[in-house]
Design a protein around this nucleic acid. Structure first.
Length: 490
RNA sequence: GAGCGUGUAGCUCAGCUGGUAGAGCACUUGACUUUUAAUCAGGGGGCCCAGGGUUCGAAUCCCUGCACGCUCACCA
């Protein structure tokens, strides 16, 4: 960022130089505070008004407010505010000089005694001021804060300093990731890593990013899903594995999509999709407790209840409930497309029964699924990696859990039959040749070979971590839960 | 990718049917001193997103571009 003129920055640089002329390094190597704001408050919660203690403490933080010509300063550390009281009559000349060179935004350390003022504000009475980082940039206004969304995302550090909700969301993101990880580790599942650079795109229907390896002179795809590698680990003998990591999809950007996002995938031997429903519910409950301490939360004006078991509904039953149309009674692709058209749902004429069902579901049902709901039994046509439903061979054993109308996860009883798998992937290749950009154009032979060695019955679950964080932090935009969301270069 | 909207001081925003800029916070000088959006008085600070055009004259009207937001499309 190139500043042409900035008077206030020039003044701050001059103050920085003045500190150096006084023999003070405004960017020292180390400072060790003895107290955080919360510890200070905890230890002195019973200190009466207008009393001072003799104990010397050291605190540190960023100056956010200066009042009464420096007599009062508010500094903030990770836990909150500490008021600094500087008695202008009692501080030595040198300290007064340093005080006069401070600005809002500077990070300072204060050594002094503890006092509660007449008005009841716990304060540190400064005896020694140490500049820890002279700030050369002016912070946004204290009252309105930073509202320019572009600057919020481009200079997230400023947003974090000024807007408490921003740093809190990012802290909660970290807590949620820890909770999710711990839920799996507690069950004995192994955290693993698989390639991000894929020679063949696979594992999800999505447009990939393509990159190039010079020494190999080969194009590689940034992964759209880790699925096919994780299943190989199950073939190899691991009992259960999970990976939490970044995947990349070359698609549009909006409030619910970022080109790179965090997915968690877990595969567990001798489990099916019913087990994955229980597993997902446990993951969500633990993460909710880790961030809220309760299982009922408010989101976008709705109370969302994670306490009771999530509703389990088949896709066709939801469609029937909201439209009156029973897709299971429809036998041909043509009739299915016509049924969709009668409901006002746009479906291409050449689409099949399953695509029509999914389209109607997405348009007519999704929005109603505010409370956690497992939507089960998708049509087979767009689930190439899923085992056929044991009760209806037009369907598969798959579910997606919806919260607030958003798809939060995607889980299967994994397809393990290598012959069936080959046929389904060959169908994808056929679709790709017909122009479907998201279908996999090259069959991952090695993956099918792995299945030929024998994949035991396995349950798999993929969770959109960013969306889980959104729900649990009350954020309506995915950009607010990703520290550095993708933006155009300026 | 399409439609709509926004872009003015470090930040938050005014700026009418065109006459080359204002406020609050912040900064600065001074006053004051137990304040907590401290207060009071003075002062400084603008490539008005960029480039074209219309006009005697453009922050303002028109065109093009850039960035961001919202809605839609694709998707998780």
């Amino acid at each position: 960022m190139v500043e042409i003129t900035n008077e206030q920055r020039d003044i701050r640089i001059e103050k920085e130089k003045e500190l150096e002329r006084m023999g003070i390094n405004p960017y020292p190597h180390i400072y060790r505070p003895t107290h955080t704001s919360s510890l200070l408050n905890e230890e002195n919660k019973d200190l009466p008004n207008d009393t001072e203690k003799e104990e010397l403490v050291k605190v540190a933080g960023r100056i956010r407010a200066i009042r009464n010509s420096g007599m009062f300063m508010d500094i903030y550390d990770k836990d909150g505010k500490i008021q600094i009281f500087s008695s202008l009559q009692h501080l030595p000349e040198e300290e007064l000089k340093v005080l006069s060179l401070l600005d809002i935004g500077d990070i300072i350390g204060i050594e002094g005694t503890i006092k509660r003022t007449k008005r009841g504000e716990l304060s540190v009475v400064s005896q020694k001021i140490t500049v820890l980082a002279k700030s050369l940039q002016v912070l946004p206004e204290k009252y309105h804060g930073l509202t320019d969304v572009e600057m919020k995302y481009r200079q997230r550090y400023v947003d974090m300093i000024v807007n408490k909700e921003t740093i809190e969301s990012l802290i909660n993101r970290s807590k949620i990731m820890t909770s999710v990880r711990q839920t799996f580790l507690d069950k004995g599942l192994l955290e693993v890593e698989t390639p991000i650079l894929h020679p063949i795109k696979g594992g999800a229907t999505a447009k990939p990013f393509v990159t190039h390896h010079n020494a190999l002179d080969a194009d590689l795809f940034l992964r759209v899903a880790p699925e096919l590698y994780l299943k190989r680990l199950i073939v190899g003998g691991m009992e259960g594995v999970f990976e939490m990591g970044r995947v990349f999809r070359n698609e549009g950007i909006d409030t619910r999509h970022n080109p790179e996002f965090t997915i968690l995938e877990v595969y567990w031997k001798y489990k099916d999709y019913y087990d994955m429903m229980d597993l997902f519910e446990e993951v969500v409950r633990n993460a909710c407790l880790a961030t809220h301490g309760t299982l009922k939360i408010e989101f976008d004006g709705h109370e969302i209840d994670f306490e009771k078991p999530f509703e389990r509904r088949s896709m066709d039953s939801l469609v029937k409930e909201h439209t009156g149309v029973d897709f299971l009674a429809i036998k041909t692709d043509k009739d299915a497309v016509e049924a969709a058209h009668r409901l006002g749902v746009k479906v291409e004429g050449d689409q099949n029964w399953g695509q029509a069902l999914v389209s109607v579901f997405e348009e007519k049902c999704e929005g109603y699924l505010i409370q956690p709901t497992h939507v089960m039994n998708h049509p087979i046509s767009n689930s190439p990696l899923t085992k056929t439903n044991r009760e209806d061979d037009r369907l598969v054993e798959r579910f997606e859990t919806y919260i607030n109308g958003w798809e939060m996860c995607n889980a299967y009883t994994e397809l393990t039959n290598p012959i069936d798998q080959r046929a389904r992937l060959e169908d994808q290749v056929r679709q790709a040749k017909e122009g479907n950009e998201e279908a996999d154009g090259i069959l991952d032979e090695d993956f099918v070979t792995a299945l030929e060695y024998g994949l035991p019955p396995t349950g798999g679950l993929g969770i959109g971590i960013d969306r889980l964080v959104m729900i649990l932090t009350g954020n309506l935009s995915i950009r607010d839960v990703i520290a550095f969301p993708t933006l155009r270069q300026k």
